[in-house]
Amino acid sequence: MLSMALSRRSIWVFHLNTGSCNGCDIEILDALTPVHDVERLGIKLVASPRHADVALLTGPVTVKTLPMVVRALRAMPRPRAVLAIGACACGGGIWHYSYPHLGGFENLRKLLDSMGIVIDVVGYVPGCPARPEAIIDGIIKLVTRKEGGSR
């Protein structure tokens, strides 16, 4: 399954921090650096959402980043895939009760749906912070789903 998912084409990811504490972000970087080296699997970090297959979304989506997050996700080509990384992005984390954020990707998705921005596949990588290995697992699962799903 792994080779099937990964050998077909490489996956370009865009990193979208929506108010995370940096914990998951440094774990994403960790996955890119020699010890985990995800480039061996063809996963590459790109600078623009327009080039990206998968958006790595971290953080609970604070109200100040919201317009920019919506803009970045809208700029992604279809089929759009989002990997929600960390406890904040999956369920609001320790902040979920607080006021200046949406409380995770599920609520953002509802908002995006109401704006007509479709997210085709979503993956969730819980953990605080999510380990680099879990992030690799997440991308693989997401891509398997994306390739296998109706397109």
Binding site: G19, S20, C21, G59, P60, T62, K64, T65, W95, Y97, S98, Y99, P100, H101
Partner: peptide
């Protein structure tokens, strides 16, 4: 900035 304001002190 202050985009990462999460209302910690209130929480």
């Amino acid at each position: 900035g202050f985009m990462v304001h999460r209302g910690i002190e209130k929480l």
